[in-house]
Amino acid sequence: MVKHYEFFVMTNDEYDTAYIGDIVKEYVKESGVKNGIVSVITAHTSCGILVTEPLDCILSDLKDLLTEFIPEDAEYSHAHFLHTYGRTSANSYGHLRSIFTGNHTLVSLVDGSLAMGAAQEIVFMEFDGPQQRKVYVDIIGE
């Protein structure tokens, strides 16, 4: 059985984070699927999804790392008008940070619950906000 769900994350700043594990758990409960795999994927290319411990200090360290590793004001090629959009791109650092973190995570589903360690949380990462971000949840199993 495959169950597909979608929800939006409204972010509040250019760089922002949101814990989304509880939303995913609600969909798991609603789906009725007991065993399988759950994928959580964002529909965008300048934000990310990852699993880490939900501590401000870890998220702060990650922000410092990403900002140093992928700075805002480097001489990016992706800084020009896009005729296919009718708008200007100047968010290469957002795309690169997204590539760095990845756009999805997978979690095992066992006996109706997400098989996650006690320290694990699913985190949505915004790198070009504020935006309205779409997230897909697919629950695959039986």
């Binding site: 409204m10 509040n12 296919t84 959009y85 009718g86 708008r87 906000g129 504020p130 309205q132």
Partner: peptide, 24 residues
């Protein structure tokens, strides 16, 4: 609007998000 204003892939979003973007 997309065709006439040449914003070919622009998403629709709520006014509340525009206000949040202004705040940011």
């Amino acid at each position: 609007r997309r065709e006439q204003y040449f914003l070919l892939k622009q998403h629709v979003w709520p006014l509340s998000l525009f206000v949040t973007q202004m705040n940011a």
